[in-house]
Computed example of a mutant assay.
Amino acid sequence: MSETGIAVIADIHGNDFALEAVLADIERRGITRIVNLGDHLSGALNAARTADILMARPDILCIAGNHDRWLLEKPRADMGDWDRIAHEQLAPHHLNWLADLPSRRTAQDDILLCHGTPTSDTIYWLDEATSDGGMQLASIERIESLAGDFANPVLLCGHTHIARAVRLPDGRLIVNPGSVGSPAYDDDTPVPHKVETGSPHARYAVLENRDGLWDAAFHLVAYDHMAMARLAESRDQHAWASALATGWLR
């Protein structure tokens, strides 16, 4: 089956098996345009091979996420586990590739690509952490405020790993495709919280313009997630192993 549209991927986090499965699914659908919203390499998995796959695909329009920036800016001693494990695998040409990526760009002149929000790579946009340690859909007022004056009809973001689409009152569509390679994680900022998607699938989205109106469809892709879970476990990354195996943190 051939399908027109733009595939949107994000938050691969060094999961090369998930990336390969998603790219194969995109190809199967006949989609040739792909945009990638950052956080490509950091994690407990295969950072260098993931970088090699992406570097061999100059047709994929990429931006940098917060973890990509931290791989370049932070001394290794100050890195968290995700960044340190990845950084140990990367060669200078991988880091040079990351350094050339912008933090924000447009596709097709009207689709805005960012990682967190248009002005920050660390702020959650469509969802927000709650005081009880979970995540919830953000208020429309917060979402609209963070969209600011960016008039693009489609605004794309990642960062939360949660697939979500929100239509603003003025018609702009904001889409988070979910995470290709990391279905669950925990964090301490802005408050301690967990993100759990509930399944180990790799996730991405497809944008289509139908009669002048942009819309999005979300796709879940099965792959050999247990191989990745075993790899994380072998590196004593138990939360990663649980997330990859189940989509939950146990």
Rank of each mutant, 00 (worst) to 15 (best):
D188M: 14
M79L: 15
S199V: 10
A129N: 01
L98N: 00
L72T: 14
V191W: 00
L155K: 08
G80M: 12
V191H: 00
A184K: 02
P118S: 08
W97P: 02
T130I: 03
G133N: 08
A147S: 14
R69M: 14
G148P: 09
D132V: 10
I123N: 14
A138Q: 01
L71I: 10
G158Q: 02
H93W: 14
G158Y: 01
D170K: 10
D81A: 15
L101P: 05
M79C: 11
T122Q: 14
H94A: 07
S182G: 09
L146K: 12
D83C: 13
E196F: 01
N96K: 15
A86T: 07
T122Y: 11
D81I: 12
T189G: 07
L72Q: 13
R164K: 14
G80E: 12
L137S: 11
D186T: 12
V191K: 00
D149E: 15
D188P: 03
A147I: 09
V175T: 05
R142E: 04
L137Y: 07
D121H: 14
D100K: 11
Y124W: 09
L126N: 01
T189E: 15
D186R: 15
G116S: 08
M79R: 01
R172F: 08
H161I: 11
A99E: 10
A163W: 01
G181P: 03
L101C: 09
P169M: 08
L101D: 07
G178L: 01
Q108G: 06
D81T: 13
D187L: 09
D186E: 15
D149C: 10
G134N: 02
R172A: 06
L173M: 03
S145P: 05
P118Y: 06
L98D: 08
N176A: 03
E128Q: 11
L101K: 10
A107P: 05
E144T: 15
P118R: 00
W125Y: 05
A151V: 01
T130N: 01
L101R: 11
G181T: 00
D121P: 05
V166P: 04
W97L: 04
G148C: 06
I174Q: 01
D132P: 02
C157W: 01
T160L: 03
P102V: 10
C157R: 03
C114Q: 00
S131M: 13
R105F: 04
K194C: 13
L71Q: 04
A138C: 02
S120D: 15
A86L: 04
A165R: 06
E128C: 00
L168I: 06
W97F: 14
